[in-house]
Simulated assay, not measured.
Amino acid sequence: MKIAINAGYSEMPYGGVGRYTIDLIKNLAAIDKNNSYYIFSRIHSCHLSGLPENFFYYTVPAADLRSFHKNFSQSKQYKEINPDILHMLHFAVPKHRGSAGLVITIHDLIYPVLSSLSMLLSRRSPVSCISLEGLLSSFSGRNLARKADALITVSKTSSRDIRQYLGVDARVIYSGLNEDFISPKTPGQISETCSRFGLEAKKYFIYFGGHGRRKNVMNIFQAWNNLPAAVKNYYKFCIAGEGYYEKKIKKLLAGRLRTQAGNFIFTGNIAYADLSVLAAGAYASIYGSFYEGFGFPAAESCAVGVPCICSDIPSLREIMPASGLFVHPAKISEFTEAIIELCGNKNLYNKISSDSSSACSGFSWKKSAELYIEVYKNCRQ
């Protein structure tokens, strides 16, 4: 088969969809030597270099990702290939797909879910996330979803959301976990990496993930500032990644909260090899998102055996049912109390750490890739 894959988000390797795109393609390349794959993106991603000879990489210039998603399949290269399967690795449908069977992966339904009345009344959606696009997206999404020959999603939670808001069924193929988070870490490796970032193993909490509104970074920051001085003076707070709220926190620490600046470490965007070691070296991680389809950072914390204080939302309950300390995402006091409890209750800490090590062992990119190959075959029958 000739399989075309929209890999547009590979240019954003630090976001969830970008990471998903890169890891899935790498694992397809590792196990499938029979089919031919044609990878399309707006710019060439260094993270997808060294693919085998049955993988072909094409770049199609576009002003932005949205226009790329709509128009890449009208390129000369795509038309000449005339693929049997077109796989869109996020929720979009191009203007033209030829005779190809269409596979769409939907990671989540951020806009309709966060704009829903039930989420707002339960305070599980920030008011700033309400948008006209969100209120209307379930209507436009129904038409897009029905154009797919196979609809895939990454969790049972997302599958239920798709059924509720789009009125269609989606098969669940769980995301895998990046190899860097699965591989064991030595004490020396953790010590060396922590030292490079000005940290000491097990003497810091870590947040890693996106910095958009729904990620709830400011509530986590405020919860940390509300901690007793003894806790803040002993532990540092490491914030990985970049974005609007990272910059906002830095501005606060340079201004009226400058006396607390020494308690924070900002890494910026760093390679998974370093991020996975920093996650393993942390005392615990904090992940307060209002909504997720899967939740890579929470699952990755589990993979390295580190307790995660996380939002009590359906997807995180699904992927790590017994290995998290769950709190209401809108209640800052619950985050603060959870941090204090983990610091003071060693029995609870050890139990969550032990449970975490095995909680995410079933998330395998190899297994996900095998299931996608099965989907491709079924689309041509």
Rank of each mutant, 00 (worst) to 15 (best):
E341Q: 15
E370D: 07
L371A: 10
D355E: 11
C343P: 03
A338Y: 00
E334C: 04
I340T: 15
S361V: 09
L342W: 00
E341W: 04
L371S: 10
G362N: 06
F363H: 01
S368F: 08
N350S: 11
W365L: 02
G362F: 05
S358W: 10
N347K: 15
E341T: 15
T336N: 00
I332H: 01
K351G: 04
S361C: 10
L348M: 07
K367G: 05
N350T: 14
Y349I: 09
A369C: 08
L342K: 00
I352D: 01
L342E: 00
S354C: 13
L371R: 13
E334Q: 15
C343E: 06
I339Y: 00
C360M: 05
F363G: 01
I332S: 02
S358I: 13
E337N: 14
E370N: 10
S356L: 03
L348K: 10
E334L: 05
F363N: 02
N347W: 10
S353M: 12
N347F: 11
Y349E: 06
W365V: 03
C360Q: 06
W365C: 02
S358E: 10
S354W: 12
C360N: 10
K331P: 02
F335L: 05
N350C: 09
W365H: 01
E370G: 13
K346G: 03
S356N: 03
S353Y: 09
K351I: 14
C360V: 14
I352W: 03
S356Q: 02
A338S: 08
T336F: 00
S333D: 14
S354Y: 12
G362R: 04
C343Y: 00
S354L: 15
K351Q: 14
S353V: 08
N345K: 03
G344P: 03
N345M: 03
D355W: 03
S356T: 05
A359C: 11
S333Y: 11
G362Y: 05
K367V: 09
I339T: 04
E337S: 14
S353H: 12
S358T: 14
F335Y: 15
S354G: 11
K351A: 12
S357Q: 13
S353N: 09
L371W: 06
I332L: 05
K351M: 14
A369E: 03
C343D: 07
E334T: 12
C343K: 01
C360Y: 06
I352N: 01
S364Q: 08
S368M: 14
L371E: 15
D355N: 12
K366L: 12
S368A: 15
N350V: 10
I332Y: 01
G344F: 06
N350M: 10
Y349Q: 04
E370R: 11
S364I: 12
K351S: 14
E334S: 04
E370T: 09
S356I: 03
C343G: 02
S364F: 10
N347T: 14
L342P: 00
L371F: 08
S354T: 09
E370W: 08
